[in-house]
């Protein structure tokens, strides 16, 4: 098997060009999905028979929680690629995705807690799902702090990669916490093997919102990565050319 195509992926110049071309499309798609999903979910989707309108927070909470975990998986993959193949782009992706993931985790925790008060009767309970999600937030903080604490870029890249890879063990714990232990948080509504425990007029807007969140995440990540690449490669010829052509 030839690895040349894989190494081409790691070239900052190639990434800068291709992401520039993709970004308008991703932006258009995710904004459309965000508008459609939020209006559909917050206005047109039916109420829940027990929770009434308060269940609608699901349209923010679930996409944010999915993204928080997906983003961490991406950090771990970037960590492995960075450590094994020594690809510069992987480190850029890792550094740029960590703050977005931290925000997503924060949003998932806050919306969950706002929903928890009327539904459960408490803002916070030290149950396995909630606690493992809080640990995810601290892992993100750790990665961001580690990056800031080490001034040498290569050392920081190695340290954050190792931390991202080791922390990935928390992801299956979050996922299965509701099955392994007695928790206050309910088990998953959506599973691959079974029909969702929710009618289509409720989960279709949720699906649109999840896609919108993925789109916005990619867009935000690309914007941050492009800036970081320009900063890191500012002495190279292609950056000078790219900036001159743009202005």
């Amino acid at each position: 098997m030839s690895w040349t195509f894989f190494h081409k992926l790691g070239s900052p110049k190639w990434f800068y060009e291709i992401s520039g071309k993709l970004m308008p499309w991703i932006a258009a798609f995710s904004l459309l999905a965000l508008v459609v999903g939020s209006v559909w979910g917050l206005v047109f989707a039916p109420q829940d028979y027990q929770q009434g309108n308060s269940f609608r927070i699901i349209y923010i909470h679930v996409p944010a929680a999915i993204l928080a975990q997906s983003c961490y998986m991406m950090l771990a993959v970037a960590g492995v690629v960075g450590l094994v193949w020594r690809m510069k782009l992987a480190d850029v992706a890792l550094q740029c995705a960590a703050p977005i993931g931290a925000w997503m985790t924060f949003v998932a925790l806050i919306t969950g807690s706002i929903w928890g008060k009327p539904t459960w009767g408490t803002y916070w309970e030290w149950d396995a799902r909630l606690t493992s999600m809080l640990i995810l937030l601290f892992l993100y903080f750790g990665i961001i702090a580690l990056r800031m604490a080490i001034s040498n870029r290569d050392t920081a890249a190695k340290a954050t990669s190792v931390m991202a890879i080791v922390g990935v063990i928390n992801i299956p714990i979050i996922k299965y916490s509701v099955d392994w232990w007695n928790t206050l948080h309910q088990p998953a509504t959506f599973t691959i093997t079974e029909k969702p425990a929710m009618p289509p007029e409720m989960w279709l807007p949720l699906l649109v919102m999840v896609l919108a969140f993925y789109g916005l995440f990619t867009l935000n990540l690309f914007m941050r990565m492009r800036l970081e690449i320009l900063k890191r490669e500012h002495k190279t010829r292609w950056v000078r050319d790219a900036l001159e052509n743009n202005s």
Partner: peptide
């Protein structure tokens, strides 16, 4: 001294529940 409600994973519109 504290009672919390546990929500299940089922969601449905009021008409369906009725």
């Amino acid at each position: 001294d504290e009672v919390l409600a546990k929500h299940d994973e089922e969601y449905m519109p009021p008409e369906v529940a009725k």
